[in-house]
Design a protein around this nucleic acid. Structure first.
Length: 302
DNA sequence: ATTTGACCCTGCATGC
DNA sequence: TGCATGCAGGGTCAAA
């Protein structure tokens, strides 16, 4: 389900129900996700307050602060606080109580939704964060490839080696071109490498390559600078458009508030093997690259 | 060092 | 109807 646009859609959908609210109760029905849910998470979260949600690649980050009313212990050890995270205007209580954060990844089939007090959990609803006003952040994940963990401070190893955000200025065609030199890997799995650029999964890699007119099987190192200019623009374009449409709903993706995404109807190649190309009418072909299905137009993509 | 393959897990579509 | 098979939005790790 979730690539960058779906994670971003989720973040925007759930943020208004969480930010600045206190966690009243935590229910973990299934600890065995891709990583086990940390021991003691429930107690550590109760009474805490959720800060401003952010996203890095396909990870959601939920800052966890002590609630304003809490008296911080005098001897609170200022351990793994990210330096600079506790800045002016963040609130006086943060000085004494270290700020922490949850790192949440949705894997292949995970989703986060806002439920209401009394909504019965369904199968595969593994974790609930119940807020003070009765809103519930509910994690659903049939395949359990996702996880929920404490962020390991500033230099979390899971975030440390990530490439640039595709919608930020740090992602530019010159860098993409330079990274590709001497790479024999096919360009599609190259784009899906998180060290190169983050957030581009199987759907949007295929779509961006179609927009740029590049054959996904072509070796990354044998594509011209000029074509990387087009590809960079295509990646930005397709991700931004997908966010605007609320993501791609294939079978069950919904935003945090339950809306499906409407980008599926804009897909040019993903999932359309055997169907006619929207540009030239020729039949779209399927190949496997890096063990992932890759549909493309043999006429428009060279 | 780069690249490939196996693996984590369940649900669904397909074909017999 | 039941059963077996293959495939699915991601990421990590070991081995080639």
């Amino acid at each position: 389900m979730p690539e960058l646009p779906e994670v971003e859609t989720t973040r925007r959908g759930i943020a208004p129900y969480l930010e600045g609210r206190e966690i009243r109760e935590v229910i973990v029905r299934q600890r065995r996700l891709r990583l086990p849910v940390p021991e003691g998470l429930e107690n550590a979260l109760i009474g805490m307050r959720i800060g401003a949600l952010s996203r890095r690649a396909k990870y959601l980050i939920l800052p966890i602060d002590a609630a304003p009313g809490d008296a911080a212990p005098d001897d609170a050890a200022p351990d793994s606080v990210a330096s600079g995270a506790v800045g002016a205007g963040d609130g006086i209580w943060l000085e004494a109580k270290p700020r922490q954060a949850l790192l949440w990844h949705l894997g292949m089939s995970g989703s986060l939704r806002i439920a209401r007090l009394g909504d019965p959990p369904k199968k595969h609803d593994h974790v609930d964060l119940v807020m003070e006003d009765g809103a519930i952040l509910r994690y659903h994940d049939p395949r359990r490839f996702g996880f929920l963990d404490w962020l390991e401070g500033d230099g979390d190893r899971r975030l440390a080696k990530l490439g640039p955000e595709p919608l930020s200025p740090a992602f530019d065609d010159e860098r993409l071109f330079q990274c590709s030199r001497k790479r024999r890997l096919a360009v599609k799995p190259f784009l899906m490498d998180n060290a190169i650029v983050v957030g581009v999964g199987n759907i949007y890699a295929a779509e961006a390559l179609f927009l740029a007119g590049i054959d996904p099987r072509r070796a990354a190192g044998q594509i011209s600078r000029e074509r990387y200019v087009r590809l960079t623009a295509a990646i930005r374009e397709v991700l931004a458009a997908a966010i605007t449409q609320g993501g791609t709903t294939l079978r069950d993706f919904v935003s945090g508030t339950g809306e499906p995404g409407y980008f599926a109807q804009r897909l040019n190649v993903y999932g359309r093997n055997g169907e006619p190309c929207r540009r030239c009418g020729r039949e779209l072909r399927l190949v496997t690259l890096g063990q992932r299905a890759s549909v493309f137009c043999p006429s428009c993509q060279t």
